[in-house]
């Protein structure tokens, strides 16, 4: 049972479908705790699908189904008995496009805590400040917490979304191409942020940007046509990959 302490999420022989289309084909991999794991691969290779199974975001897609074993600690992620609300509190997600709610900056961050915790006003304020600081956006927004979040720049919005995700106190942070809509400077800010957060959170990031995966992750999984072709340390994947397909992909030959 030593595994349980080092792995945040364990998948074994996981298959997933959208209707008749098999999106994931017997996936087995362990997401290590307190490390950044990157999923790379060409479009439609199943990396986002797997990420979305980690906190059951696929529940809203009626045709989505999965078999096999997917566990977070001792929680069976595929079981219909799993408390999805509690699961999503523990597994936060940040999306490709920054999606702040059309509310104030403060309300955005306070949204999650209000759902899950009973806090008084000062506790809530402290928590919001903590989350904004953690997400490295506090200095930029501290004077306008009541301003609409949609008035922030793209990079700030995305960091606000990260603050919103960590305000519920998750153990795992899923990031679905968090920088694909951002300019290089904002991307850098988010990458630095991930570097800061890695000591306390398990981060899983899906990215199309190979440099990003190589820069920020400890481990990298290469997906192709619904299968994990190679899962190894990032250094290995980007210097001496085992599989031919991985090599071709990281060299930019396809995908």
């Amino acid at each position: 049972m030593a595994n349980q302490s080092t792995n945040a999420i364990e998948a074994s022989n996981l298959n997933a479908w959208y209707g008749d289309f098999q999106a994931l084909n017997s996936i087995s991999l362990q997401i290590p705790k307190n490390e950044v794991t990157a999923f790379i691969g060409p479009s439609g290779c199943g990396k986002s699908t797997l990420l979305r199974w980690f906190n059951r975001m696929n529940d809203t897609i009626h045709s989505a189904s999965a078999t096999g074993d997917l566990r977070l600690g001792d929680i069976d992620l595929l079981s219909s008995a799993t408390d999805v609300v509690d699961l999503r509190r523990r597994v936060g997600i940040v999306f490709q496009k920054a999606n702040p709610f059309p509310k104030s900056i403060f309300e955005n961050v306070a949204f999650g805590p209000r759902l899950h915790m009973k806090l008084n006003k000062t506790e809530l304020q402290d928590l919001v400040e903590w989350a904004l600081r953690k997400a490295a956006v506090w200095e930029e927004v501290k004077d306008r917490l009541n301003a609409p979040a949609l008035g922030l720049s793209g990079g700030q919005q995305q960091r606000l979304c990260i603050a919103r995700a960590i305000a519920t106190g998750p153990e795992i942070l899923l990031m679905d191409e968090p920088c694909s809509a951002l300019d290089p400077a904002s991307t850098l800010a988010i990458e630095d942020l991930m570097d800061e957060l890695r000591s306390q959170y398990t981060i899983v990031i899906v990215t199309h940007n190979m440099q990003q995966a190589s820069r920020c992750s400890d481990k990298t999984a290469f997906f192709f046509e619904g299968k994990v072709i190679e899962f190894n340390s990032t250094e290995k994947i980007f210097t001496t990959p085992n599989a031919k397909q991985t090599e071709d992909y990281v060299r930019g030959k396809f995908g």
Binding site: Q211, S214, R215, T234, E235, F238, T239
Partner: peptide
């Protein structure tokens, strides 16, 4: 050095 060259370009 090689690692940094490969990972961070």
């Amino acid at each position: 050095c090689l690692k940094l060259l490969a990972l961070h370009q």
